[in-house]
């Protein structure tokens, strides 16, 4: 056999294996590492990787196939992390944490975005430091009006998910004050409905800046999130509505905005 044909055979066998694996529903896992697939299937079937501009069909998404897990009643180490929108949520979440026996660590990175969290290891750093069992990520409000957002930010969202997808997490979407250019849809597409709380569907009273919900409105927002976490999220945790306000102060780390 001509030596070049042996090389051709080698390339063809490799490509065939990659193609077969890309089409299969089965994922090979080796010591906790899942072998990634190439996007050959998407290329051959003509499925765009991100259905930008189309109505979202959650049945098409892999994450959409996830099934809700039983509720976890154990006490949790909750990491609340994200942009300035979480300030209001934090005040009410403290009450929930005290009433349900959880522990809370809050990290606020002012003016942050999926670009910042998605191009740094900040999130991973705090996960390694605090070792949370539950993550609430509040992010997206600073990118409501970014044009061509999927092309610009999708890789950052994926980078964020890679850092948290082995843990139990929810992503709390931005409380829109205007229609966005696609940030909500893009995050939902990436994390799936069981991980995503679409805050844009609620009505808010805003502070004078016109963007942040008022303290009272944020409390109601947190109440809605808690109901959703307990009933509709991927892996519910206990978040019974507290009867009284918590007295302990929150464990908060504040990160400076980038210049």
């Amino acid at each position: 056999m001509n030596i070049i044909w042996k090389i051709v055979a080698m390339l063809l066998i490799t490509t065939t294996l990659l193609t077969a694996y890309s089409f299969s529903d089965y994922e090979i896992e080796f010591k906790g590492i899942v072998l990634k697939k190439t996007p050959i299937k998407e290329f051959i079937l003509g499925i765009p990787e991100y259905p930008y501009g189309k109505a979202l069909n959650l049945r098409d998404t892999l994450v959409g196939k996830e099934v809700q897990q039983p509720a976890d009643t154990a006490s949790q180490r909750i990491l609340l992390i994200g942009d300035s929108m979480l300030e209001g949520l934090m005040l009410r979440l403290k009450d929930y944490v005290a009433a349900n026996g959880h522990d809370l660590k809050t990290v606020i990175w002012y003016s942050s975005s999926t670009l910042w969290y998605g191009s740094t290891d900040t999130l991973k750093y705090f996960i390694d430091e605090y070792k949370p069992t539950y993550i609430m990520l509040v992010l997206g409000a600073n990118e409501l009006f970014v044009s061509d957002i999927i092309r610009k930010r999708n890789k950052n969202v994926k980078h964020i998910i890679r850092q948290i997808d082995t843990l139990n997490y929810i992503w709390i979407g931005p409380p829109n004050w205007k229609d966005d250019t696609g940030i909500n849809e893009m995050i939902l597409k990436n994390v799936g409905p069981l991980h995503y709380f679409a805050s844009k569907n609620l009505n808010y009273k805003r502070t004078s800046d016109g963007a942040h919900p008022t303290k009272a409105s944020s409390a109601m927002w947190m109440d809605s999130i808690a109901v959703w976490v307990e009933n509709k999220s991927y892996k519910p945790i206990r978040l019974k509505k507290p009867d009284e306000k918590a007295r302990n102060s929150a464990n908060v780390t504040i990160l400076q905005p980038l210049r």
Partner: peptide, 10 residues
């Protein structure tokens, strides 16, 4: 080739 795919960034 699989190692390359594993490490391929977005």
């Amino acid at each position: 080739v699989q190692v390359v795919i594993q490490f391929k960034s977005e």
